[in-house]
Write a protein that binds this DNA or RNA. Structure first.
Lengths: 113, 113
DNA sequence: GTAAGTAGTTACCTTTGGGTGAGTACACTT
DNA sequence: AAGTGTACTCACCCAAAGGTAACTACTTAC
């Protein structure tokens, strides 16, 4: 196999790793919501108005497993839970920016034509 | 609603636009394959060895609809079809690079620990 | 004691995404 | 005339993703 093909194969493998983390309808929205500050369960739900508590709970767990976010329990009077990005989660900032920049471009090129 | 919340809502909307284009198991791999040069149907299939012709055909059509790739028919002796990135497809380069960079980081941080 | 807000869970159902295997249509080779 | 390579398509099936509605458990406010 040529070196060029090797590079392509390597990139395809890496892309699958990233995809495993961000795949699905809700994970990127949840991460984006958390880039705007640490949030409680209900606050994320209000940001993403059409997500059900089931999906939110499920996807938060998956993101926690992948060490993208962290769940903190506050033993205040009404027990509250705070979700925040981990240092690994924060490294997605550039990736998120590119997704948003491209989305703007796509909207300009396609959706508005 | 505060201005900060408006920004968050706007980003969530844009992210959905991008997601619509790249969502699924195969679209990013196909696009990545095409960043390594224009390819024929069979060549993409060889790059992504576990994709079925059905899925490849289906996803190529979706990417063509979104103006990410273009299908060119060559009336050579055995009729061949060449797929290539459009100018819009080429604008995904930075996004793809971030996905790959982050995948490398993720592999280092999680998969290798 | 009733309501409202916290953060979820559970069961059930539908939809979609994707897999499998076979078949098609055309041309070129032998 | 049989086989090979190109680029698919079609029918069928299953599992995963996601939606819906109801319910839980705890606390504070009224």
């Amino acid at each position: 196999m040529s070196q060029k093909e090797d590079v392509c194969q390597y990139r395809l493998m890496i892309a699958r790793d990233t995809l495993e983390v961000i795949q699905g309808k809700w994970r990127l929205p949840i991460i984006i919501s958390l880039t705007h500050g640490n949030k409680r369960f209900g606050e994320i739900q209000r940001d993403i108005s059409d997500i059900s508590p089931k999906m939110l709970s499920q996807e938060l767990k998956a993101l926690e497993t992948n060490k993208i976010i962290i769940r903190t329990l506050h033993d205040s009077m009404p027990v509250t839970v705070e979700y925040s990005l981990t240092s690994l989660g924060l490294t997605m900032k550039k990736l998120l920016d590119e997704i948003l920049d491209w989305g703007v471009l796509f909207r300009k090129e396609i959706l508005e034509k």
